[in-house]
């Protein structure tokens, strides 16, 4: 079971998501698996903030500078210098010793500072609890606490997702990031995100 870090403590692991855009076929299986795994009560309900299903993953369509159509899957970046953590007035948002940004619902007032401070706009409000939700959801946290893969990684039929420890040079994510060209989102925002996008050729 992971533990909450105190101020000044460094995580023992730096767990990171890798999304390989060169493999993703935009089939939506991860988006739906996230909902049915983490928020089954929301399977037939709209997430009104994003005007979408209640998933912790958002799809954004865009165009590259060269005019090539692109799709981007965005979720919590588990930033090493997370604005949401710094702006939370109640200490509800915290980093655990895996380097994951988590929420303690017992301490959350639903003030939404974390939602508005996130430069990636990846948090949403549960319409009943009025508390913010994001990656990882409760069930996925159970999975990763046991050293397993989250739902999005398991459900991907194209092998486009991975999750692992950046501190372990032999982890699959470390190997991927060493051998393939990747980028982080809003690199210059100073958030030090741990969500990596492997780029296609």
């Amino acid at each position: 079971m992971s533990t909450r870090l105190r101020k000044g403590q460094a995580p023992t692991k730096r767990m990171a998501h890798v999304w390989d855009a060169s493999k993703c076929i935009a089939c939506g299986a991860c988006v739906m698996a996230c909902t049915s795994t983490n928020n089954p009560d929301m399977m037939m309900r709209e997430e009104k903030g994003w005007n979408s299903i209640a998933s912790n993953i958002r799809r954004i369509d865009s165009v590259s500078a060269q005019g090539r159509p692109e799709v981007l899957l965005v979720q919590c970046q588990h930033c090493e210098d997370a604005p949401c953590l710094n702006t939370c007035p109640f200490g509800a948002t915290y980093m655990d010793d895996n380097g994951m940004i988590r929420l303690d619902p017992r301490m959350c007032s639903g003030c939404s500072y974390c939602v508005t401070s996130c430069p990636y706009n990846v948090r949403w409000f549960h319409p009943d609890s009025k508390l913010p939700k994001k990656c990882m959801g409760d069930t996925c946290l159970e999975l990763v606490d046991k050293g397993l893969q989250p739902a999005c990684v398991q459900s991907c039929p194209a092998g486009a997702r991975d999750y692992g420890d950046l501190n372990d040079p032999n982890s699959s994510v470390s190997v991927t990031l060493r051998t393939k060209r990747s980028r982080r989102l809003l690199e210059n925002a100073g958030t030090e995100p741990k969500y990596f996008v492997v780029e296609g050729s």
């Binding site: 493999k23 993703c24 935009a26 159509p69 050729s201």
Partner: peptide, 9 residues
């Protein structure tokens, strides 16, 4: 039209 699967490299 660009097929979704064509996003993948």
């Amino acid at each position: 039209a660009h097929p979704d699967v064509a996003f993948a490299n």
